[in-house]
């Protein structure tokens, strides 16, 4: 009877295998301990409830038909960590909101309309968020015996609250989906997204590195201590109040509109555009370098 119960529980648990076995061991130990303490197996199993309900309370979701899955509101998962020195994100199609919090913990909330195949781990104070949508889809598939119909237009939103004074490094590799970073102080920030857009508002970073194919990059009131490097194939780059001693930008056909917070005289300005090179020697140590093939370029300084 115990084995039957555990087998049903095993079937109903949709965590990864490692975690599933851990939960099974945990429950088996609990049941054995209760029996040792004099309770009968029947009573214990009755008080636990049917295995499917127990599984639901472990995973926060119930095995269900695809129809129900589509109808279900957001799936939520929540993680908390302390003392993170780097956030390392590798994903395919997630949207991100990264903002500061008064908490001293890193709070991560993932909202998704179907299993996004995301794993979150903390190793040596490096927080890794990895997405394998194929794996996520396999999980949905095994759960429902069908491929989720919204596989390709799933919505996944990852919210990360960063402690105000953490100055952690941030590395994002994402394909589509938007990235919003608001009011945070970062160490080294590297943002790579293929077709999604990235917007940074009120951000202070030690260094900023962005790579983009299409999509757009918007920097609003961004201060960078060391250098800002931007690479873009065809999307647009726009900054308002960008403060950075070294700014270099490379694009093929994207449009560029830079408003730089600083004195024009301080900057050495090198613009390299097909047949239209421009070089202005500055007085200070700052550098603005723009390379473009066919995109429109505009830039201005606040002073």
């Amino acid at each position: 009877m115990l084995n039957d119960y555990l087998a049903r529980l095993k079937n109903a648990l949709h965590n990864d295998i490692e975690e599933r076995d851990e939960i099974l061991n945990f429950m088996e130990e609990m049941i054995n301990d209760r029996m040792e303490n004099g309770e009968s197996l029947e009573d214990i199993l009755r008080s636990l409830g049917d295995p499917e309900t127990v599984a639901e309370s472990f995973t926060g979701k119930r095995s269900e038909s695809p129809k129900e899955e589509e109808k279900r509101a957001d799936q939520l998962s929540h993680y908390e960590y302390r003392n993170i020195r780097k956030i390392d994100i590798d994903s395919i199609s997630c949207s991100y909101e990264i903002f500061s919090s008064n908490d001293d913990r890193f709070l991560i909330d993932i909202e998704a309309d179907s299993d996004p195949g995301i794993t979150v781990t903390n190793r040596n104070s490096i927080l890794k968020i990895d997405q394998d949508p194929i794996e996520g889809n396999f999980r949905s598939m095994f759960r429902n015996w069908s491929v989720s119909r919204n596989f390709f237009n799933r919505k996944v939103l990852v919210k990360i609250a960063v402690p105000q004074d953490s100055r952690c490094d941030l590395q994002i590799d994402n394909v589509s989906g938007t990235i919003h970073i608001n009011d945070v102080v970062l160490g080294k920030a590297e943002i790579e997204c293929v077709s999604g857009s990235a917007t940074l508002t009120d951000v202070h970073a030690h260094a900023l590195d962005s790579e983009n194919v299409s999509g757009s990059l918007v920097l609003q009131n961004v201060t960078v201590d060391e250098r800002t490097e931007m690479e873009m194939v065809s999307g647009s780059i726009r900054t308002s109040m960008l403060k950075s001693p070294k700014i270099s930008l490379e694009t093929v056909s994207g449009s560029v509109d830079l408003q730089i917070d600083g004195k024009k005289e301080d900057y050495e300005i090198r613009i390299e555009k097909l047949f239209q090179d421009e070089h202005i020697q500055g007085n200070g140590n700052c550098l603005l370098k723009i390379e473009s093939v066919s995109g429109g370029i505009r830039y201005g300084f606040s002073v």
């Binding site: 939960i23 945990f26 429950m27 609990m30 636990l48 127990v54 309370s57 472990f58």
Partner: peptide
């Protein structure tokens, strides 16, 4: 507190 509360 239930088993499934304690586990996480």
């Amino acid at each position: 507190i239930s088993e499934s509360t304690l586990y996480p």
